[in-house]
Simulated scan of single mutants.
Amino acid sequence: MDLPDCVNARDLGGTPLAGGATIRMRALLRSDNHDLLTEAGIAAVRELGVGRIIDLRHGWEAREFPSPFVDDEIYRNLPLLGVYPGFDPTAPDDYRPEVDHAPERVAAAFTAFAEAPPGPVLVHCHAGRDRAGIMTAIALAVAGASHEAIVADYTATEGAEAKTMQDLLDHFDSEHGGVPAYLANGGVSPHHLTAVRERLTGVPGQDS
Rank of each mutant, 00 (worst) to 15 (best):
M1D: 01
D5V: 01
D5N: 15
C6A: 15
N8K: 07
D11H: 04
D11E: 04
D11G: 01
G13C: 07
G14W: 05
G14D: 09
L17P: 06
T22Y: 00
L29Q: 08
L29R: 03
S31N: 04
D32P: 00
H34K: 04
H34C: 03
D35V: 07
D35R: 13
L36M: 12
L36N: 12
L37N: 02
L37I: 12
T38H: 04
T38C: 06
E39C: 00
A40R: 14
A40I: 01
I42Q: 14
I42Y: 00
A44W: 07
R46D: 13
E47H: 11
G51A: 10
R52S: 11
D55H: 06
L56I: 11
R57K: 11
H58K: 13
G59E: 14
W60P: 00
R63Q: 14
R63H: 07
E64D: 14
F65Q: 14
F69N: 07
V70C: 04
D71N: 13
D71C: 02
D72F: 05
I74P: 00
R76Q: 12
R76E: 05
N77V: 05
P79T: 06
L80Y: 00
L81D: 01
G82C: 13
G86N: 11
F87Y: 15
D88E: 08
P89K: 02
T90I: 02
T90K: 14
A91Q: 07
D93R: 15
Y95S: 11
P97V: 11
V99Y: 02
V99C: 09
V99A: 08
D100R: 13
A102W: 05
A102L: 05
R105Y: 03
V106L: 15
A107K: 06
F110P: 00
F110R: 07
T111L: 09
A112C: 10
A112L: 09
P120V: 09
V123L: 11
H126G: 08
G128N: 10
D130N: 15
R131Q: 02
G133T: 12
I134G: 02
M135Y: 05
I138W: 00
A139S: 10
A143R: 03
G144C: 08
G144R: 09
S146P: 01
H147F: 08
H147N: 14
V151Q: 04
A152S: 13
A152M: 04
Y154R: 05
T155L: 04
E161Q: 13
K163F: 07
T164D: 13
T164G: 02
M165I: 09
M165Q: 14
M165S: 08
D167Y: 06
D167M: 11
D167T: 14
L168Y: 06
L168N: 05
H171G: 06
F172L: 11
E175R: 15
H176R: 06
G177I: 13
G178D: 09
P180Y: 08
P180F: 07
A181G: 01
A181C: 03
A181D: 12
Y182R: 09
L183M: 10
L183S: 04
A184S: 15
G186T: 10
G187V: 12
V188A: 09
S189K: 15
S189Q: 15
P190H: 07
L193C: 08
R197N: 05
T201R: 07
P204C: 06
G205K: 08
D207P: 02
S208K: 03
